[in-house]
């Protein structure tokens, strides 16, 4: 009778759903329980509280209004971290493209320097400022050629971006669509776009 009872018990537990086993498998059963408890505990403790995250992008940037004349062009300086910062040039009558470039070469004004803006485009001696070698040519296909009275090859990447973006801004069209080629006495640089920023 006892033997029969034991056999029944074993079969029955097998039918419960594999949770346990025959009497001898008590260890396996205990292990399953421990694993389940550990899993639950881990779920509870690891998932509790507010965890720090990395930087997560979330939607568009803010779009502010900037007080400037509709005909104004932008001169691009560099922030301390190397980003391009536009400064509107709203003088009237609107400056010619070469004048805007001269303005860039003169570097940031007092107020702009106070905000930490800087330039990497080398300043020119006064003699070269108004030479005949300044020429900005623009064809209808959104290509622009800028001839400068100083060597362009030694220019830093930041200086090149400053020149390209400032020149592209004078084209009247969207600055990012204009392809700008910089030429100096030492030859030309590959054509470049003002970097698209959204």
């Amino acid at each position: 009778m006892r033997g029969v009872g034991g056999a029944r018990g074993a079969r029955f537990v097998g039918g419960v759903g594999g949770v346990g086993g025959v009497r001898g498998a008590g260890g396996v059963r205990g292990a399953v329980g421990v694993v389940a408890l550990a899993l639950g505990g881990a779920l509870l403790t690891a998932g509790c509280g507010i965890k720090p995250t990395g930087v997560i992008e979330s939607g568009q940037p803010a779009e502010v209004s900037v007080a400037m004349a509709s005909y104004a062009t932008q001169v691009y300086f560099l922030s301390p971290t190397g980003g391009l910062v536009p400064v509107p040039e709203s003088g009237y009558p609107p400056a010619a493209p070469s004048d805007v470039l001269r303005r860039l070469l003169r570097g940031p004004r007092e107020s702009e320097r106070a905000a930490g803006l800087r330039t990497e485009v080398p300043a020119l001696p006064d003699s070269k400022e108004s030479g005949p070698s300044w020429r900005v040519e623009q064809n209808g296909d959104g290509e622009m050629t800028v001839r400068l009275p100083f060597p362009v090859r030694p220019l830093s990447a930041g200086a090149q971006r400053q020149l390209v973006c400032t020149a592209a801004g004078t084209a009247g069209a969207a600055p990012t669509t204009v392809e700008v080629t910089l030429f100096g006495p030492d030859g030309g640089l590959p054509a470049a776009h003002c970097p698209a920023l959204g």
């Binding site: 930087v55 979330s58 940037p61 803010a62 779009e63 502010v64 209004s65 900037v66 932008q74 922030s79 980003g83 391009l84 910062v85 536009p86 801004g169 009247g172 069209a173 969207a174 600055p175 990012t176 698209a196 920023l197 959204g198």
Partner: peptide
Amino acid sequence: VGMPATFRLGGVRRPTG
């Protein structure tokens, strides 16, 4: 929350810095 200020220029969004 970080939010750059941009403005429209020639129909394109440009950062103000």
